[in-house]
Simulated scan of single mutants.
Amino acid sequence: MLDHQEPRLGPDHADTVASFGRFAYWTGELGDPERAVPRYDELLARQRRLLDDGHLAVLNTRANLVSWHGQAGRTGPALELCEELLRDVERHTPEDHPLRPITEAEHAHWRGAAGAPAEAAAALLLVLPRVTAALGPAHTDPFAVRWRIAHWTGVAGRPSQARELMRSLLTDVSSVLIPEHVTFLTCRVEYAHWTLATGDVEQARALLTELAPEVEAVLGPGHPEAVRARELLAALPDPAAGRER
């Protein structure tokens, strides 16, 4: 589509920019944050030639840049970009706009990734009711916030609590999302991770033996969650070695 639109309409035509935005979106969603970042950079440059910085489309693109920088392992830039975005979201959006609590949650998450997991979990717990009120309890964003609360709770040294939080989240996710949904699969991988972290090796093995090939089949072998599931499974101790002793 872009090969046809760009020479005929120009790179900054609204239709071309919309198509480029979908191209950037699916690049990230298919699990390729390294390529998503420059594509969102290019999208932002095109949008800024058409729109002012307070436009919702520009703010959303900046939010995506925060996420994909972070998922590509660049925590420092993600946190810095998120701090700047949060100030602009507060300046340009009404107090009840969903992007406000969503950006606050994103900021808390990258604070956790920067080395403050307990503070991140506490901040996410505070913002969760506002994200839920803005989007509804069955939206994937409140699910993501709950996943992050569990994750940073575990990283902060409470793996059993993290496992219980993920168990509760999985119950709610399973009632809303299809089994193949990326959020559902991500939650299952996280639950397996904290099951292993609590020392329940055999349960973790049972979960991951089923889960790893399923995630790979649905999301592709190169997707970060597929890689994570395989690495968790590979890290399990060999059961045969235990029987030999």
Rank of each mutant, 00 (worst) to 15 (best):
V131Q: 02
T209Y: 00
T61E: 04
L65M: 05
L169Y: 06
Q161R: 15
G70C: 02
D3N: 11
L44F: 08
D53T: 15
P94A: 09
H97L: 08
L169F: 04
L169V: 09
V66N: 12
E244D: 07
P224Y: 04
V218D: 05
V145C: 03
A72S: 13
R22K: 12
D96F: 06
H151V: 00
G222I: 01
G220Q: 03
R87A: 14
V127Q: 05
T171G: 14
T140S: 02
L59M: 11
H107F: 10
A18T: 14
R158L: 11
A226F: 01
E95K: 12
P179C: 02
R46G: 08
V215C: 00
P7L: 13
D200S: 10
E119N: 01
G54P: 06
A150C: 03
V189M: 00
E83H: 13
P179T: 01
L59I: 10
A133N: 07
G76T: 14
T198P: 09
A122Y: 04
A192V: 11
P179F: 02
E83K: 10
E80N: 07
E202A: 13
E210C: 01
L165M: 10
N60D: 14
I178N: 13
E6P: 09
L56C: 12
G222D: 13
R111F: 08
D53W: 09
E202F: 03
A57Q: 14
R228M: 00
R87S: 11
D15W: 14
T186E: 08
R8V: 14
L50H: 08
A206N: 03
V173I: 15
R146G: 03
A105G: 09
H107W: 07
R46N: 12
H181A: 11
L99M: 11
A122I: 02
W152S: 10
A192N: 06
L56E: 15
V201R: 14
L50Q: 10
R49M: 00
T27G: 12
E244K: 10
A241G: 13
N64F: 12
T198Y: 13
T75C: 08
A123Y: 02
A57M: 05
G115D: 00
R243G: 02
H181L: 00
L50P: 02
S19C: 12
T93Y: 03
R148L: 08
A206Y: 04
A162Y: 05
R243N: 08
V173C: 06
T103S: 05
D32L: 08
Q161H: 09
R39N: 15
S67E: 14
I102S: 11
L65R: 11
A229F: 03
A204W: 05
G220A: 03
T209P: 07
P137V: 01
L56G: 11
C82N: 13
G112N: 03
L43N: 05
E106Q: 15
A206C: 09
E84R: 15
V201D: 07
I149A: 00
P221I: 08
A234L: 10
L219C: 03
W26C: 07
D88H: 06
P129Y: 00
D200P: 07
T195D: 07
G157L: 05
R158P: 09
G10F: 05
A234V: 05
S174P: 04
W194F: 11
L211D: 03
V201F: 05
H151L: 13
V58L: 12
